[in-house]
Design a protein around this nucleic acid. Structure first.
Lengths: 219, 219
DNA sequence: GTCTATAATGGGATAGAC
DNA sequence: GTCTATCCCATTATAGAC
């Protein structure tokens, strides 16, 4: 049965490519695009450089595949806010939790994406434009819907979302510095739980207060 | 007068080195450490590669000098919180403003530093340990002093500070993505003002609420 | 699909004249 | 301090045998 053979081969190919990209994510995150040599990735994945280039003809192809998988993975876990209808407070709590979970479980993915954006997204700006921006806009619309329904306070939805992203993603991107401050080798589950409490409280406070005045305070 | 000549030469040298590092910050931020060629930096600064290497014998020396200047600049603008004694609300407002100002006026500095940290701070971890961490710890102590005096709500000071950092720094580091969402070429002054309002309100809400419950909500 | 070999390029760094 | 010339190495990518 040639069909079976072909299928098995294809399965093996997929599996091997997955192993390669899994290593590539880590190396790209730690060394940057230019700092990553495909020989290092190949070594970590347990095959020769030339063999890797059979599966990924160029370094850019490997990099873009890595970014694609990072984005796929992230989008798959981040449908929460769009699927609204529930209590905004619970939706936002779940959203923060999901983002923090991603930062904890997939720090390299977050870092590769972050480095690409920090560099100005020279290679991935198009994908961000077509795949990320529409989703963000949809999330912002959810916020504004809540506001118009009087369910949450009239905050600036765009910047609130930016704030949530920044706070949660930083636990992947800047964990090295955080670990130095906290005097440990790496962040623990408890650190993420503490972070979750602080962030959730801040976000809920932001949408709860009817109209927090930006100047002056009470007697 | 040889003394004058020497002084003038030293001044010129300082000025030239400043021009070199000013260009280097931008290139390192856009291309990463490995992605940056000293030839490119030299070109942008208007001198030859070999001439640049007269002032900075190695690429690493140039990079570390860039990071040193970034950190010097940042520390110089960030004494605000430590010099406390005032109303916590005003101190925190000024702190957020100062951090956002730095992000707006010096985005490349922020990005170079961010990329180094994201990569795990392989070359600058020591300096972060000795120069940044003590300052952060001091800021955290200020928070905890406020808490013990009953001036602010009992929040987790460490993670609140992480949150403030993340929110403010992201307007430098992730401005490319934000600009795509906001559909502009780059962030405007108004965007930073909007951001300031949202962030300040969130931070003040976080320290104002006596004890924000992390579950359930009022009637 | 995997291997050996090899092109071809770019970039960090050095030597030495002026 | 600035220039020309050059070395040396790492790395991407290709060619071709098996």
């Amino acid at each position: 049965m040639p069909t079976v053979k072909i299928n098995r081969r294809l399965l093996n190919r997929d599996k091997l490519e997955a192993e390669i990209t899994a290593e590539a994510v880590r190396v790209f995150a730690e060394c940057g695009y230019e700092g990553t040599s495909i020989a290092t990735v190949a070594d970590n994945a347990g095959l020769s450089k030339q063999n890797l280039m059979y599966y990924f003809p160029t370094k850019q192809a490997l990099y873009q595949r890595v970014l694609d998988e990072v984005l796929d993975d992230w989008l798959a876990r981040m449908e929460s806010l769009a699927a609204a209808g529930q209590d905004p407070r619970e939706v936002l709590r779940a959203y923060v939790q999901a983002k923090l979970k991603f930062s904890r479980e997939n720090p390299w993915a977050s870092r590769v994406y972050a480095m690409e954006v920090i560099s100005g997204a020279p290679l991935y700006g198009g994908q961000i434009q077509t795949r990320v921006v529409p989703l963000v806009r949809k999330d912002i619309e959810v916020f504004e819907q809540w506001i118009s329904e009087g369910k949450i306070a009239p905050v600036n939805a765009t910047h609130l979302l930016f704030a949530i992203w920044a706070m949660t993603q930083s636990y992947a991107d800047f964990s090295a510095q955080m670990a130095l401050v906290l005097n440990r080798k790496q962040l623990t589950k408890k650190d993420f739980d503490d972070a979750e409490k602080v962030i959730v409280d801040m976000v809920l406070a932001a949408i709860s207060v009817p109209q927090q005045p930006s100047g002056g305070d009470g007697p």
